[in-house]
Nucleic acid binder design. Sequence first.
DNA 1: AAATATTATTCGATATTATCGAATAAAGAA
DNA 2: TTCTTTATTCGATAATATCGAATAATATTT
Lengths: 246, 246
Amino acid sequence: MENKIILSVDKSMQLLDILLKSRHPMSLKMLAERSGYPKSTVHGLLFTMMQHDVVRQYADGRYGLGIRLYEYGTAVSESWDISALVHPSLEKLSEMTGAGTFITFFDGKNVISFDRCVGTGGLQVIPEVGMRMALHATAQGKLFLSTLSRSQVLHLLREFGMPAFTPHTITDPEQMLAELDAVRVRGYAIEHGEYRRGLMGAAAPIHEIDGKIQYALGFVGLFRSVTSDDFLSAVEKMLTVAKEIL
Amino acid sequence: MENKIILSVDKSMQLLDILLKSRHPMSLKMLAERSGYPKSTVHGLLFTMMQHDVVRQYADGRYGLGIRLYEYGTAVSESWDISALVHPSLEKLSEMTGAGTFITFFDGKNVISFDRCVGTGGLQVIPEVGMRMALHATAQGKLFLSTLSRSQVLHLLREFGMPAFTPHTITDPEQMLAELDAVRVRGYAIEHGEYRRGLMGAAAPIHEIDGKIQYALGFVGLFRSVTSDDFLSAVEKMLTVAKEIL
DNA sequence: AAATATTATTCGATATTATCGAATAAAGAA
DNA sequence: TTCTTTATTCGATAATATCGAATAATATTT
């Protein structure tokens, strides 16, 4: 399993990750330090990626993500082109509930937001488009996890970890499995301050292809509790809209 | 030059390119044929990229671009607009020249300002963010027109018209075509009171993707003439800054 | 249901080449 | 200028990517 990996390619991807996380162009020296590889090695990898415009070098010598990645990203997002289809539904749900709404996509491992609509309410903490979301601390994450087998869930939780964002975050795998059972029964997932204190939300499946949920519709906002009338009515509205989209 | 390239990384990028161009998931066999590398080699590269979600494999075994590329693409596009990359350059240029500076975007038809910085000089007539600018009477407009064919230019000029904002405004299409030739030779465009009497400016291309100029950096201010020392030095500074942005 | 064809994956020997530290070049700061 | 920092190049060596062939897993046909 480990030895099938082509190391130079693996290192290249690590560099891209570092550049992504830093959010800023980085010097060769920094890149070498952060990755743990010698400068010359890093240089060679960066040089190669530069030939493909996957990495670019600025006038001051620093390196950053290249234009080509934008092209790739666009190509990937086009393959989900249900965005145009569902955006009106997002707006509708935002208007009805006042909460921020968004659509996520699941590839079996990552939950990524690809469309969103800000609500009318005050605090808006809905994920940016393109952001990867925590599996264990968001309604979307739990919804998608609920479609997986016990072993798959445990594997993913181990891989990504279960950091406690708030005191409400579920950090115990067994507890999570129980929660996922509840999600399966309920048909949708809820999140009560597990990611940000006081923020609550829910997520419902949209597109099911042979049993696999591909997308989720969700909302997040400030509610008194997950049993309050306004929250429950928002959930109802979400389910209605999700059913319309199918 | 050739031997500095790390082959396995290079091959990986080739595979991404093939996947991008095909616009559809591809089988290992196809990928091997198209790339010209043995199946086992291709498999190893794909497997490695899969670990990073840069490539994904579908249930039927075919391979496609991975969700991670979307994340990268989003990060890259964010680095384009206003904040991170360009704005500091705008401020720098404003400070150096004293003139108002701005960045425009061209979609093939409209020139739209999407970031600006007021200068230290007195009169400031730089476009608001989101404003569409005249094609025939601004440096930006002429710069973008210079990238189009004769027929495209004539078509656009006919569509939008060539109203005379000042006595210096070019109102004759043929005269404009001659001006555009000059722009192409010069590499940047200048504007001498064609939009507002006494206001002069220039625009330089920033981002060229396969020959197409996507953005332009420009300044506008009060100068004695387009041949005066202060104007020419401002042009020089603009070109320097534009080159830094690349 | 069995047989066949097609495609994905694994394996192991080999030579290629990625790697690394050190040297050099280039750019910035003092 | 000189000194410092950072990027780039170089070359010997060990590591490993590569390749063809074998095997496993699907899909298709009979």
